[in-house]
Design a protein around this nucleic acid. Structure first.
Lengths: 352, 352
DNA sequence: CTGAAAGCGCTTACAG
DNA sequence: CTGAAAGCGCTTACAG
């Protein structure tokens, strides 16, 4: 910073009063004489005073910044979740320290340390890949901490998740309902708990509905390679008639691969994804997807963190938000091209 | 934070030395006796010492955090740009303060203030919507500042952009080369400089190639409405044979709308977007798009900022990165479904 | 309602 | 190579 900052002392000197009074005008205005306050505020404005967040944070031992960490910034769901958190945080005067772990557990650890070294008031972890055991230690560090889309077996910690189990069941039930008998599940990252939950729930639901379920591991593979592996299954498992993909991009890749093989969607194979991304409605056929209240997930995470920061001793809460099914042409027998309905476009309004 | 932090004094006391020495072990290790240093480092490790970033920043007047601002977190290009910045910043031990302006100029202003109040070492603004005049003031504030995808007419400021003019020309030339005579340009946000540059460059290129160009304003409209407006043009301008969209999502929306009207792509109408998003290759037909070196844009922005932070007096630099054309089925006459080539998949490697 | 003073955790000339 | 001391900008009991 080239120019020297205006401090509370500059204002105090200019007005011939004490720095303490100036400080009070900002922190506890009710303690100071209205006229004085008025003059201070005006002078501050004139002199371009801007409170030093570092000095403030140094005192309380806590800044008014929050730490936010994502496992991989490229996952399109995170934009909405982060958007929800950011908006809520901004409105409550919190700044956001941001880190992208790049699916790297060691980096998650380092980012956490960075957050702590900045004395953040709280931390929100979006589906961290760090194993439970270590996560326990983090919770022990004493920072208000909220987990999004990741549950812990042992430790007590505020958690906000989407009902992945319910979503996966719903997906399988939908596929069964449209007459599908054998589903391929294209798995997501091993480290993603949502992946495990969905796979397991899908397996159970499939068993209950007497539908076959085969899981294809795609750990670390780009979507195009995933599609190729899917194609290999065509020889191996020629009888499958539905694909359920961990996310919409993978679903789209699968549709593309299937189409290239001359397989009709949804007549021969139905395809369903997760996340209900905005461009899903524009594919051919439009993609059926399991939608999640992403923005709200972010907002609730912030609320949970706020509660925790205010009353650290309160019981940890676990909040599970319901998702919902958005049926489009990739699973709907009658898949005539049509305008998307308002409900599909603005999925927020569909939330139960 | 529930537990009290270990400070430099705790270590000093434990070892019977001064805090200054402990501090030096971290900041200027070469100044301190090797044996002492060793003991300090060990003790620090044991006691779980973590330097307080706020205290450090308070001293120099500058923290080692950077401020990053985006106009709208939902734009998929930003994930790559931010990813590039984050990675570079992380490797150079900078934390990131993040803000999403939500296309709101007032919020941009407030976020900037927040960054300053945290004494950030520098700020990167991704295509800010704030008018030139005010941006000048910001530059006057003296913080190292880098603009991404936004140029300033008057002020001198480090800038990293993609060659939007060249990209738009390239797009028009490509459309002309495949025999198109009349292009509809679906415009992006008014506040986005890239939009203005592209529209103007497209206009010029169109004139040079004797191709018609008609701009459809879509300010503030969701993609679906944009598509509807596009459809209205079908009656109004039945002769257009190409659509150039501000981004891939809009291009996709256009393709969807055209297809729904029974118009063949690319035979009757060619469609081209900007950004080359990952899912563009999966549409039907796969989407031709103007690609940008997004991650590199972020990396160069960080480098520019770093240079500015180290030598504040140096001449401002303007860096223009070239983009490139990725031809796919939506503009290629022979649009038989096919596997995407390696070059299309990993567009990074295609960069000139 | 206001001021003097101590302190948050760290760094850095200044002496030794 | 090491320590005592001052200071970064602000807040907050403690007196008045």
């Amino acid at each position: 910073m080239a120019k020297k900052q205006t401090t509370i002392y500059d204002i105090a000197t200019a007005l011939g009063i004490s720095a303490a009074t100036v400080s009070r005008c900002f922190r506890s205005p009710e303690l100071v004489n209205a006229a004085t306050r008025q003059r201070v505020l005006e002078t501050a404005e004139q002199m371009g005073y801007r409170p030093n967040g570092l000095a403030r944070g140094l005192i309380g031992g806590t800044s008014s910044a929050l730490g936010i960490m994502v496992p991989d910034i490229h996952n399109p769901s995170f934009a909405d979740i982060i958007g929800g958190i950011e908006e809520a945080a901004y409105q409550n005067d919190f700044a956001l320290l941001f880190g992208n772990a790049q699916e790297n557990v060691a980096k998650e650890q380092r980012l956490f340390e960075v957050f702590l070294s900045y004395q953040v008031a709280g931390i929100i972890l979006l589906s961290p890949r760090t194993p439970d055991l270590e996560l326990q230690h983090w919770i022990g560090a004493g920072v208000p901490l909220v987990l999004v889309n990741r549950r812990l077996t042992l430790a007590r910690c505020d958690v906000v998740t989407v009902d992945h189990v319910g979503l996966a069941r719903m997906a399988v039930e939908h596929l069964a309902a449209v007459g599908r008998r054998s589903i391929l599940y294209l798995a997501g990252p091993h480290g993603a708990q949502a992946n495990q939950l969905r796979a397991e729930a899908a397996r159970q639901a499939a068993a209950e509905h007497q539908v076959g379920l085969h899981v294809i591991d795609t750990e670390g593979l780009p979507v195009t390679v995933t599609s190729e592996r899917l194609m290999q299954q065509l020889d191996f498992l020629p009888q499958f008639d539905a694909v359920l993909a961990y996310n919409d991009l993978m679903a789209l890749g699968a549709m593309h691969a299937l189409t290239a093989q001359g397989i009709a969607i949804p007549e021969q194979v139905s395809v369903c994804g997760f996340d209900n991304v905005s461009w899903g409605e524009f594919s051919t056929p439009p993609l059926t997807s399991m939608a999640q209240p992403l923005k709200r997930l972010g907002e609730e995470a912030f609320s949970a963190l706020q509660r925790r920061m205010e009353t650290p001793s309160e019981q940890p809460l676990e909040m599970v938000l319901p998702g919902w099914l958005v049926v489009r042409g990739s699973t709907r027998p009658d898949s005539t091209p049509r305008r998307p309905t308002a409900g599909e476009r603005r999925s927020e309004s569909l939330r139960p």
